[in-house]
Design a protein around this nucleic acid. Structure first.
Lengths: 87, 87, 87, 87
DNA sequence: GCGCATTGATGGCTGC
DNA sequence: GCAGCCATCAATGCGC
């Protein structure tokens, strides 16, 4: 006995899309705030005499290393799959 | 009575840079997670029959509108300042 | 004794932008063709019994390694600069 | 009188995959160079007073238009085929 | 048809 | 302060 204009969770259709948009906007706001926080940490490091550019390089480097490990695992799994050792 | 090799919060210099890097990495991780959350909301919207591309356009549009409002307020404040109504 | 509406290489202004666009379009076409060539090599490798997905991983991996070397040099130069050994 | 471990063009198996990879890498290098050329043309256009962003839009627009033409021709051919006018 | 990989576009940061 | 550079993000295209 469903009611036209309402979906399973009780929200009317117009509200559902509104809800999605608001959730996204809330998350985007959160992301922006985190980005701001990061900038502030760099600024603080700079005021402590550290070279921001180098700091960025270090962080980027470590991130790539971490990605590399994940990538290694992915390619390793691929090899295993290709010889039928992984399914 | 400060001690060479230690900064005000008690951490040795080597630890200080380490601390900055770790704070940044923690925040970057947080940012990535939020980005993932956003993607998931879009995916959920899609599975509810919404067109993701259009949804993105709506969100982007609203973001631009919000920016314009902020911009207008900033300009408005500038006017107020220029006539000495805001300090 | 320059002539209005003509630039140094003798083309009228309207033709100049046309010329830029055509050069770009020619280059883009070239790029597309090269991309097609790459695809064909992968297809050929596949028909020789190689796993394309793994092949792609290998190529990507080698590319990243090469990038890594360049990046190493860049960060090394940065360090040198930061201690005034490079100007 | 073929020899095991060698394929038709005389290369041993290990060399064959190496050959594929090198061909791909050579082509990728070519592609990167063309991409660089494109950037340079944009830069040149910019130094001639053109707005790169707008220029990009024009090129993209024309690319899309060309695609549509190709698409229409393809559909047109399909129609011709369906009525037996093209085989 | 979907997910992934690439590519194009935009915005922010850094260095003149 | 702006221009060039880089990093991120959206969009398209491709292969499965």
């Amino acid at each position: 006995m469903s009611e036209i204009g309402h979906n399973s969770d009780g929200a009317v259709q117009g509200d559902q899309i509104k809800s999605f948009i608001e959730r996204i906007e809330r998350l985007e706001e959160e992301k922006r705030e985190t980005a701001t926080d990061i900038k502030e940490v760099y600024a603080e490091a700079k005021s402590n005499g550290y070279d921001v550019k180098i700091l960025r390089k270090i962080v980027a480097r470590r991130r790539r290393d971490a990605d590399e490990v994940a990538e290694e695992e992915a390619i390793f799994d691929l090899y295993l799959q290709s010889i039928g050792m992984l399914d």
